[in-house]
Computed example of a mutant assay.
Amino acid sequence: MPEPETELVATPHGVRLERLVTGAGDPVTVFAHGLGSGIATTRPFGSGVTGRKVFFQFRGHGRSDSPPGPWSYLDLARDLRAVADLEGATRAFGASLGAGALCRLLAESPERFERLVFFVPAVLDRPRGRAARDRITDLLDAVGSGDASAVAEVVSYELPPSVRNTPAGWAYLRQRLDQLLRDGLASGLVTLPDQVALPDGAALAAVTAPALVLACAGDDLHPVEVAEQLAAALPRATLHVYDRPGVLWTERADLRERISGFLNG
């Protein structure tokens, strides 16, 4: 999707965050992106969602500030809470890293949101595997080198093989390359794959909101086991597992219907 003009907003914890607000009216939904991603990659998830939609960049991403580290999921939860509070969001969507930040926020404020969507959660109370650490290290090294071909090689793994050599795949790569080479990624992100979102997933037992947890079989960076554990920890969760990764490309209509139908309901 074309990148619209965004804004930098001040937060109570002193970190300016890049934000985009689309749509109009209530309810308001906040969208939290994955590690190394951002506003552009989360916008498609909100295409069928009614009301105002608030997209933002976590610290270290895009034009958002990069305060001194190391950073934790508690810091990410503060970023998410600040953006949600500024716009009065009552619903929340979290993808991968954003799902972990949302879990940390809910552990402290279990009644903060009325509806929740978790897309391919990557971590709960056990650290991520080596594949996740290697992927973010490779991405940071490539972006730091300024070599477009090196960045493109790492980013291409975000695409299903069937999409990589298509016009849609090339457009996605170009958009990601433009954003990453323009804004960069903060080195403080490298420690996050070694951390957990919560000391104990049981802390989510007090969450009262209905939740939708979405996972993909065969996704090494986002194991189905994490989604199953999260769905079991949330009292009112529904789990759906797709049979292969890359569903934003291969199952977009179904994914849009599930997310918008749940949030709009």
Rank of each mutant, 00 (worst) to 15 (best):
M1V: 15
E3L: 14
E3Y: 11
E5L: 14
E7V: 14
L8S: 03
V15G: 05
L17T: 04
L17V: 01
V21M: 00
A24F: 06
G25R: 03
D26W: 01
P27V: 02
G36H: 02
S37K: 10
S37R: 15
G38H: 00
A40L: 12
A40Y: 00
P44G: 12
G46K: 07
S47D: 14
G48N: 03
T50L: 13
R52E: 06
V54A: 05
V54H: 06
Q57D: 14
G60E: 08
G62N: 04
P70D: 10
L74E: 15
L74P: 01
L80V: 03
R81P: 02
R81C: 06
R81F: 00
A82T: 07
L86V: 03
E87Y: 11
F93P: 01
G94A: 04
G94E: 01
G94N: 01
S96W: 08
L97N: 01
A99L: 07
A101M: 03
L102S: 06
L105Y: 06
F113E: 05
R115M: 07
L116Q: 07
L116P: 09
V117A: 08
V117K: 10
V120W: 09
P121Q: 11
A122H: 04
V123H: 13
R128G: 11
G129E: 12
A131Q: 13
T137L: 15
D138T: 10
L140W: 12
D141V: 14
G144C: 14
S145G: 15
A148E: 15
A150H: 04
A152Q: 10
E153S: 09
V154F: 13
V154C: 12
V154G: 10
V155C: 10
E158K: 02
E158L: 15
P161T: 02
S162L: 13
T166I: 06
A171G: 12
Y172H: 13
Q175G: 14
Q179F: 05
R182K: 12
G184S: 04
S187P: 08
L189Y: 03
V190F: 05
V190Y: 00
T191M: 00
T191Y: 00
Q195D: 13
G201L: 04
A203N: 04
A206Y: 03
A206T: 08
A209R: 10
V213C: 10
V213K: 11
L214P: 08
L214S: 08
G218F: 12
G218N: 12
D219C: 04
H222V: 11
P223L: 08
E225S: 14
E225T: 12
V226Q: 12
E228V: 05
A231N: 11
A232C: 02
A233E: 07
A233M: 09
A233Q: 11
Y242T: 02
Y242K: 01
Y242Q: 01
D243N: 09
R244E: 15
W249S: 01
W249Y: 09
E251G: 05
A253C: 00
D254Q: 13
G261M: 09
F262E: 13
L263N: 06
